[in-house]
Computed example of a mutant assay.
Amino acid sequence: MPPRGGDLSRLRQLNALSVVQSLRGAEPLTLSALAQRTGLSRPSTKEVVDELTQLGWVEEVPPAPGTMGRPARRYRFRAYVGHLVGVDIGAHNVRAALADLDGNVLAETRRPARPDAPLDERLTAIERAVVSCLDLGGMTMADLWTVAVGTTGLVTPEGRVMLSAGITAWKDLDLAGLLGEMFPCGVLIENDSRLAALAETRRGVARGARDVVFLHVGRRMGTGLIIDGKLHRGFGAAAGEIVMLPETRWTTAPEDLNNAAIVPEGTPVEDAAGYTLAAARNGDPAALEAVDRYVEKLAVGTAAAVLMLDPEIVVLGGGFSRSADVLLPPLRDRLEKVCLRMPRLRGSTLGDECVVLGAIDYAIDHLDRLFFPADGAALRPPSRPEPRATTPAGHSSR
């Protein structure tokens, strides 16, 4: 639910943001419907809508052709006035998605990459993925307001990647600075598992949940945490790095699926786990044994997170989430033996899209804070990207 507005004289910006969030992604609404959604009085709602219309964020929708009488005025958010790009930098692929301010994906591209690729090669893949995405959407770099990036590795609040087990070139790397030179707009950097967790609470199976553990399972393992409805980074932005605990054996867990006897010789490593999981679904004994070994390791770190945080829901996401029907039953059996209270266990419905969608939602949150600041008046949408500047958090921002 959008935040509920209060007295306009005291909470003017909260009310403006409340109206914007109520209109975003919705059908055109009348003033009465908006007042009901935001908790504002109808006169206050009209005052906020008039202001947002003058600034260029909201517009009145003409009556449908053939409408009789004098219909109530309806309003919508002008999502098309700005655009952003979400980027997912993985060890093996770089994915980019162009979106409007409603978060609707307008175009998407993917570029292959190698885990051991040199820095310049990976940066080139990132730029090409974004440029191709813009080309598909009929836009240029000048149309971008923000680029939000999710990457594997330990990411500081300043956008520096301290280390990454999946990408060898990602070590004490000022990724925010490098991409800030590449793109003529604000650049945000965040850990990919955290962005995936954010996407699940906004668009996926954890929508509306306040406490969430996201398991990023695939050719590498990771977690993202949502606590009290907020993305949780921890004091040093290292929260959720359960993979670093040797006792979990998460760094080697995917090999259990790759090395199963059922996988034919010569199968590409990127297809081995999928082959094993499909065979397990069909009841193959060797594949089931491999899945059992994998889940035994997965359960150790998951149980630790559940016992520590007591989440409402645990979401299985990432590349292996397509086989949630195979993985969740044995995971549930193990967790039930040690957890004081069992959370809901669900497989992601976002699949490989989870990180890039989370990056889009992360960028929208950033733009809301930028254009609807709590300590000032709402700003008019820019006609072109504003110059970059460094925020106190260290991100490149407009």
Rank of each mutant, 00 (worst) to 15 (best):
R233V: 08
R233M: 09
G234K: 11
G234E: 09
G236W: 07
A238M: 06
A239K: 01
A239H: 05
E241L: 09
I242S: 05
V243W: 05
V243Q: 02
V243Y: 03
P246R: 10
E247V: 10
T248R: 13
R249T: 04
W250S: 09
W250N: 01
W250E: 02
T251F: 12
T251A: 13
T251W: 11
T252D: 11
T252K: 05
A253H: 02
A253T: 05
E255S: 15
L257A: 04
N258W: 13
V263H: 08
V263Q: 05
P264D: 06
G266Q: 06
T267P: 06
P268R: 03
V269N: 07
V269A: 09
D271F: 03
D271E: 15
D271Y: 04
A273E: 10
A273M: 07
A273D: 06
G274C: 07
G274Q: 12
Y275K: 14
L277Q: 07
L277G: 14
A278L: 10
A278S: 12
A279H: 04
A279L: 02
A279N: 03
A280H: 03
A280D: 02
A280G: 03
N282G: 15
N282P: 01
N282T: 11
N282K: 14
N282C: 14
D284S: 11
D284M: 07
D284I: 07
A286I: 03
A286T: 10
A287L: 06
L288Y: 00
L288A: 14
E289W: 12
A290N: 01
A290H: 07
V291A: 09
V291P: 07
V291T: 04
D292A: 13
D292Q: 10
D292N: 11
R293S: 13
Y294R: 02
V295L: 09
L298S: 01
L298T: 04
A299N: 08
V300Y: 11
V300S: 08
V300E: 06
V300K: 10
G301D: 05
T302P: 04
T302A: 15
A303N: 03
A303G: 11
A304C: 15
A304H: 13
A304V: 15
A305K: 15
V306Y: 01
V306I: 15
V306N: 04
M308Y: 11
L309D: 00
D310W: 12
E312K: 15
E312F: 15
V315Q: 08
V315W: 04
G317T: 08
G317W: 08
G317F: 05
G318R: 05
G318Q: 10
G319E: 09
F320R: 03
F320E: 07
F320V: 08
R322Q: 14
R322H: 13
A324K: 00
D325F: 01
V326F: 02
V326M: 04
V326K: 01
L327P: 00
L328V: 12
L328A: 08
P329T: 11
P329F: 11
P330C: 03
P330V: 00
L331N: 08
R332V: 02
R332M: 03
